[in-house]
């Protein structure tokens, strides 16, 4: 691999890390607080992409208006999922998971009914190539730079929120020990709702930001959720920092193997990475071992 290809691959991997981290952190938030493995999270990502398609492409409104609508709309979908499915099933370990599979199918069918089966491939407002630092090998579309910038800003803001705000402390407390948090007067229901809204909004913003980069289709959430699950297992279930670290690790591994070999081998490598972590460090890179 010559140096130019190496630089370009690093850039490709940085972009892949960014959107994957947004999706995976949302998934971790939901799992950490609610103990629900949300299989519909990929479809929340898909819903965000379609919101952008509808606002930006079909109604020709500004791109960031589409992103804002995606965040709000998908957060509302998340809220509905929490209130109608996950909350009633909170005492049933398998109930939430099965409900999320049902929600996945409903959201996919809804997308087909509203937008048809053909994938939408449309250009964003920052489609032109940007050459970084005057180095030809560091060429990336402006749209991908927007994703990277948003990921850094949003994940940074989330980190500050979780550490500096009362809601953030409450959220972390529930994630660590919900019974102890409840004894301290924290409303588990309100915090669950907040986690679901935040997690869904992150998936929605990831979908909206990448809608002009990848084909927007009813089944676009499937490969994303597989990657996100690998990431949260590698990072450690419930660890936000672990999810970000694992996103970078997974995306760089996957992108470099794709470039050097092919995508199929890259998929296998990603799964092997997960298996190695499960064997060597079952609680993930930054996860904490379950107490006996």
């Amino acid at each position: 691999m010559d140096f130019g290809v190496f630089l370009q691959t690093c850039l490709n991997a940085t972009y892949a890390s960014s959107y994957l981290a947004l999706v995976a952190v949302g998934l971790v938030l939901i799992f950490g607080v609610m103990r629900v493995v949300n299989f519909a999270h990929g479809e929340l990502y898909m819903a965000g992409a379609y919101c952008l398609f509808w606002v930006f492409y079909q109604n020709e409104l500004p791109f960031f208006a589409g992103v804002a609508v995606a965040v709000l709309a998908v957060a509302v979908v998340g809220l509905l999922l929490e209130r109608t499915m996950f909350r009633p099933m909170k005492d049933n370990p398998l109930g939430g998971l099965i409900c999320s599979i049902g929600a996945l199918l409903v959201l996919q069918a809804g997308a087909v009914a509203l937008f048809g089966v053909r994938k939408k491939s449309f250009a964003g407002p920052y489609n032109e190539a940007v050459t970084l630092f005057g180095i030809d090998a560091l060429t990336i579309s402006g749209q991908r730079l927007v994703v990277i910038a948003f990921a850094v800003i949003l994940l940074g803001a989330l980190w500050i929120f979780l550490r500096r705000s009362r809601f953030g402390w409450a959220l972390r407390a529930v994630a660590q020990d919900s019974e102890a948090a409840a004894l301290q007067g924290i409303s588990i229901s309100r915090i669950s709702m907040l986690a679901m809204i935040l997690g869904a909004a992150l998936a929605g913003v990831a979908g909206a930001l990448t809608a002009t980069i990848v084909p927007t289709g009813p089944y676009m959430g499937h490969p994303v959720i597989i990657g996100a699950f690998i990431v949260i297992i590698v990072g450690g279930l419930g660890s936000l920092e672990g999810a970000v670290l694992a996103s970078v690790l997974y995306a760089f591994t996957h992108t470099f193997v794709t470039t050097l070999f092919d995508g199929t081998i890259a998929d296998i490598t990603g799964l092997v990475l997960m298996l190695i972590v499960l064997v060597v460090r079952p609680h993930g890179l930054l996860g904490k071992p379950e107490r006996a």
Partner: peptide, 11 residues
């Protein structure tokens, strides 16, 4: 299942 074709094109 590929969605991001940047690495493929780089290769």
């Amino acid at each position: 299942a590929t969605t991001d074709f940047a690495p493929v094109m780089t290769a």
